[in-house]
Amino acid sequence: MDQSILDQLNADRAAKVPVALATNLTTGAQGLLYLTGKKGAKDWPHAVAERARAVLLSEKAETVETPDGPVFLNPFNPPLRLIAVGAVHITQALAPMASLAGYAVTVIDPRRAFGSEARFPDIEMSNAWPDEGMAALKPDLRTAVVTLTHDPKLDDPALVAALRSDAFYIGSLGSKKTHASRLERLRQAGFSDNALARIHGPVGLAIGAKSPSEIAISILAQVTQALRQQPV
């Protein structure tokens, strides 16, 4: 591995840029491939550049056969993140569970009584308004966003920001009726049905969850499903 490749790879990881390291296992030739843009792609057969994207999305390394020999693609993705809007009872279970599952969790709630450190030990809290909080956190392809406040004043701006991002999962707590009126408001705000289909609502897998902790399990299960079973 050339020093320049090691340095660039580490710089990309520090900048939270998803990057795949391509290595020709016969010659030792290496290069870096990215999700978007053609940077680096011209040095490799088309099939390699194409699979690099799939490897990053599935987070599963693989070897691609080429006329020049087998090329190993190793994905280096930024850490998973979960942004929960609303420091409610369900969030008190969801935040530590998601943290255990490997997510860097941030809870956004401008209502200080809800979003106090005492209710969320060891979880990063933001008391910003959701639109500002989301703008600061910049959700990306490795981020899940869940709104849990039931309050359109707080949920809607967060959903608008999430829909404009590459977040791999967007979920919103609320009954079918609440969700229908939520979708109607977002439609008025200019989002297409296609865009709104990204929102999982009512949130979570249908496992009959009742208690706040069980609902957190159903949400985290759905987030996991979106992460691991997304089509590539």
Binding site: L9, N10, N74, F76, N77, P78
Partner: peptide
């Protein structure tokens, strides 16, 4: 991809 948990390439 486990390099994130233990920063292998960072150490290298």
């Amino acid at each position: 991809m486990t390099a994130m948990h233990e920063d292998i390439l960072g150490q290298v």
